[in-house]
Nucleic acid binder design. Structure first.
Lengths: 237, 237
DNA sequence: TGTATTTTATTTGTCGACAAGAAAATCGCC
DNA sequence: GGCGATTTTCTTGTCGACAAATAAAATACA
């Protein structure tokens, strides 16, 4: 046995030099997007260092990266915190994601390739499977992958990167939404996604645009309804 | 005298705790955007630490932030380098900046306020002064501030942030462009900017859009011409 | 002489420690 | 008892050092 180290700690695997930051970044990122770490909650560097079994340095670098992605807020000489969701300015988010749905769909319909279409369909298969299994977290992640694949098919890395950022913001809102329904998932989106794939595969730019807008409207309407309901019950977060 | 420290080093001012990262970040950022640090050049952490009179830790954090902004590329266990300019895929950049010129102009025309208009006009005054003084670096920075102010007037922070990123990429290309003309600056853009201000102030959305597109086309045409010329002479960078 | 291999040197990634700053707790005073 | 000043505790920002990984140089060999 090689793991005869500290009696208390769960033996953490030897990691390759340089991989620490990546692990922490991805772990925290997922936890933030899944709302495992609630918006506004403080982030203690020492606590994370102990949890991941490394010093504060790589933790710190991961936090800086997350701050650059807008997932973490930092104040000088104060604890960092999980980025809050600005419920008062959600309409800006809705504007942006609607535009990007339309734009990425349009570009994908123009520039699609067989390989890109295959990736889109693969993501959609994951998505459908997650919905069938009523697995909200997997579904939300697959939804992001689906739209990310469409953006990739469009070919413009500037748009793709921006869209990913907006989609991640949306992941937190979607999680909030499905939490409020005990994570029961509707089938209807699977059909909408299939329609988008068909339009892109056919190279129908205008139809892809129209479906992108409809998809965005659908999501915006739901989240708005959720917020209105929450506001009646108790203040959000 | 309090500065009786190292005989060699230019005495570096005492800095407040936490300000180190900001100083390094802003300094390097400006040097990268002004092409003082040429694309692709390696970045030595120790060298920077000596230059800024601090340890490697804050240097490193600044580099991570710059990498998040796409201004620095990092390879594992290898020196970081100033982000290269991908000349083969410039059309994606041109697409993105054209869209954002139009979009920010439109939104500014819709949502303008007196305060925002004042900021736009102030940036334009700086721009005109720099052109009159034939100061290329100041002009390029002021051009960025001008369009950033328009984006701010539009009110959507998602668009503003994305636009800033694209504009920064453009700053490097503009610098390249004016370097090739020995930094002699044309007057024509001052007029174009004035026209954009007028359209926004009048709330004329379609005209703002049209001017944004024309402005983008102008810049795209120039940079394309520069690249075609460079390609004839010698390979770019 | 050219190529493969070992050795050296340079540069990064990580660590533990210390000090500055802020929040919390304690104390003194009215 | 309430409020302000002081002390304490806690967390971050910075540092110097060490080890791993890579690049460069030197060496061995065909």
């Amino acid at each position: 046995m090689t793991d005869g180290e500290d009696a208390a700690g769960p033996d953490l695997p030897e990691r390759r030099r340089g991989s620490g930051v990546r692990v922490v970044h991805e772990s925290l990122r997922d936890e933030i997007l899944d709302l495992t770490l609630p918006p506004g909650s403080p982030i203690d560097e020492v606590e994370l260092a102990e949890r991941f079994g490394m010093s504060r340095t790589p933790i710190r670098e991961a936090l800086i990266r997350l701050a650059g992605e807008g997932l973490v807020e930092t104040l000088p000489n104060r604890s960092a915190m999980v980025a809050r969701i600005d419920f008062l300015n959600l309409h800006h988010f809705f504007d942006a994601i609607t535009l990007m749905y339309r734009l990425t769909n349009r570009l994908a319909a123009m520039n699609r390739s067989d390989a890109a279409l295959a990736r889109i369909r693969a993501a959609q298969a994951d998505y459908a499977a997650a919905v069938a299994a009523q697995d909200a977290l997997t579904m939300i992640a697959a939804n992001r992958s689906f739209h990310a694949a469409i953006a990739e098919a469009g070919g413009n890395p500037y748009y793709t990167q921006f869209f990913l950022r907006v989609l991640d913001e949306g992941r937190r809102l979607l999680r909030l939404y499905y939490q409020s329904f005990d994570d029961r998932l509707p089938q209807e989106y699977v059909g909408e996604h299939d329609a988008i794939i068909a339009a892109i595969a056919a190279g129908d730019v205008e139809e892809s645009d129209r479906l992108g807008r409809a998809h965005a409207d659908q999501i915006v309407r739901q989240i708005r309804a959720l917020l209105a309901r929450e506001r009646r019950d108790d203040p959000p977060l």
